[in-house]
Design a protein around this nucleic acid. Structure first.
Lengths: 188, 188
DNA sequence: TGGATTTATTTCACGAGTGAAATACTTGCT
DNA sequence: AGCAAGTATTTCACTCGTGAAATAAATCCA
């Protein structure tokens, strides 16, 4: 079967300049199948999804040696950067997870001695969660490694492009936060 | 407990201009806890992850009435835009999924009469997958709706900003594709 | 005061995805 | 030809996250 990719992508030892990301090819395929369709959104959203998938793969790989999942690390980080204890519900909202998921993760982190739970005496329904010393140490040890690796992954872009990207993403995120009914997942 | 957010975020009826996305606040929190840390990567990667999460929520919500999951729709779309039948392995690679996941999804899509499987006569190990008429119709009906909705979600950004964002993301994605050992998931 | 309502969290049954092992087939080597 | 090695796909046992129901506590208000 003949190679259907365009010339530039097919050439051996293709120079850095001429190369395309996968999504460019995907957009071209759609354009051929549905020439009338406006595929512009794929250029943004498809790429965000692919980037997220690759970056999450990288993060998972780096956390595996620490015996942490990304979701668990997310909880640890959220607690670490917060100036005060958080409730289970706040953690669920901050980490985009369901209440049930947070309950499960907290149980594990508690068993590992990383997180401490104290029921609020004013309102005995809510759980106040904080890091233990071990939890804080783990977070403080892991986060810089994570950031270093991420910095390396971004280093392919010149600094002005990184800044521009961050700025445009902030703009988009701000808009999305407003437009997508931030459905707080199954709280119970 | 006192509201610890900065003044701008606290004000009632905060004007569009002064608003910040969540990640800005997260970066400030880290900066306070670890003033020495370079949190720049969060500005890009954190935002990509948040945008992806919100966008995926929106996509899920829109596909629910069609009785499709995003993963299934991804498969249908991949088959639809491809000029030729694809193998299970190709589908796994294109959709960032494990071989096992693709096997499961294909079984469902076959049962729903959306996908057809034909074992290649040359190499009887491989499965050639194509859409049935019903599958193609479903894809052709669903994709434009999806794109319209996505277009609306992006419409908060002026066109030049959208283009700039797409361009920077392409640059990043291209780099990530090269730097992250594209671990083809458990193929078997 | 005392039920009805609301809120915070946990439990439960289940669906989806995973890595590793199993299966089935092909290719390359001698 | 015959068999070791390689490749494509499926099966399996398991983990994780989910939505809905259950539990527990606070608040509202007549």
């Amino acid at each position: 079967m003949s190679d259907q990719r365009p010339r530039e992508a097919r050439e051996a030892g293709e120079g850095r300049e001429g190369r395309e990301d996968i999504v460019t090819g995907i957009m071209r395929q759609w354009q051929q199948v549905h020439p009338d369709l406006d595929v512009e959104p794929i250029g943004v959203i498809g790429r965000i999804n692919r980037c997220a998938a690759l970056l999450q793969q990288a993060a998972d790989a780096q956390l595996r040696p620490q015996q942490l999942t990304r979701a668990e690390f997310d909880l640890l980080g959220t607690l670490r950067r917060s100036a005060r204890p958080l409730t289970a519900g706040e953690l669920a909202r901050e980490t985009f997870a369901s209440g049930a998921a947070v309950t499960k993760r907290l149980r594990q982190l508690e068993q590992q001695g990383l997180v401490e739970r104290r029921t609020d005496e004013r309102d005995r329904r809510v759980a106040r969660l904080t890091l233990t010393d071990a939890g804080r140490e783990l977070a403080d040890r892991t986060l810089p490694e994570q950031l270093d690796r991420e910095h390396a992954l971004l280093s392919g872009l010149p600094p002005e492009h990184r800044a521009e990207l961050a700025e445009r993403l902030a703009e988009l995120l701000l808009h999305l936060e407003g437009s997508i009914p931030h459905v707080p997942r199954a709280a119970g």
